[in-house]
């Protein structure tokens, strides 16, 4: 059974349809990139997958025993405030909350897992630093470590590279790719950069307030819509 199955799903805000006609499947170990222009409904779909937004129609089914508390998430723009006083470790370990549940404090194992993920993403040396004093790229890595703390199965990333310079962007894409290869974690990523998407992902979902394409990357680059989008650059 697929990890996530969407069937004829649509979302709307106050009666206005944001995106509809979504039907796709995500399997264990997939790396799916969601592409599309601004306002095409990418973040909306992700909110739906996270159960922050109810579908207007259709059904989203989680398979393979995937629970809501087993999803890691990297938001497009962190809802957190810029000047929040918190150390990187405090932020990363807060990703362990869902597995710790009602038990008070974090266990030694939680601390070890948080440190391990910070190490994996190359930010262990920033452990005790204040989050607000980091560069944009470092901040994204810390938030990615937090997302990893929350999941072993499924990572949802909403434009993880927005606002980063090309070098740092390439590094972060590489890190995500390594992560997927080494741990077999399923990744659903929203990206503006369609070239990076076809380079890294093995499935593409192209949205424009409806589903223009869903399928393997190899097929996408052969389709009319895929070629047109790639020619335009897709990099807005």
């Amino acid at each position: 059974m697929a990890l996530i199955t969407c069937k004829d799903v649509s979302f709307s805000y106050e009666g206005n349809v944001a995106v509809d006609g979504l039907s796709f499947e995500v399997n264990q170990g997939d790396y799916l990139c969601i592409v599309g222009e601004n306002g095409s409904g990418k973040s909306t779909l992700m909110k739906g997958l996270l159960d922050l937004l109810r579908p207007k129609t259709g059904t989203i089914t989680m398979g393979d025993g995937l629970k809501q508390t087993q999803i890691g998430y990297l938001p497009q723009q962190s809802a957190a405030q810029k000047d929040f006083p918190a150390s990187c470790f405090e932020i990363v370990i807060s990703g362990r909350l869902n597995s710790r549940g009602i038990m008070p404090f974090y266990s030694r194992i939680d601390r070890m897992i948080a440190s391990a993920h910070m190490d994996q993403l190359g930010v262990i040396s920033l452990r005790n630093k204040s989050f607000r004093e980091l560069s944009g790229g470092q901040q994204q890595r810390v938030l990615l470590a937090r997302a990893l703390c929350a999941t072993e199965k499924l990572l949802l990333l909403d434009e993880p590279v927005s606002g980063l310079d090309p070098l740092v962007t390439a590094e972060l894409y590489q890190t995500i790719q390594d992560l997927q290869r080494d741990t077999g974690i399923t990744i659903i990523m929203i990206s503006h950069d369609v070239h990076a998407a076809v380079e890294h992902a093995n499935h593409i979902l192209h949205l424009q307030n409806k589903q223009l394409f869903f399928g393997p990357t190899a097929e996408y680059v052969e389709t009319e819509v895929g070629r047109r989008f790639l020619r335009k650059g897709g990099d807005f």
């Binding site: 996270l50 922050l52 938001p75 809802a79 957190a80 807060s94 909350l97 869902n98 008070p104 929350a150």
Partner: peptide, 21 residues
């Protein structure tokens, strides 16, 4: 007892909610 939940909800409510808190 609820220090870590209060931190999570104060720091980033959306993330907390998205991960099932």
């Amino acid at each position: 007892l609820f220090y870590k939940q209060l931190f999570a909800v104060t720091y980033d409510e959306t993330f907390a909610k998205a991960t099932g808190t």
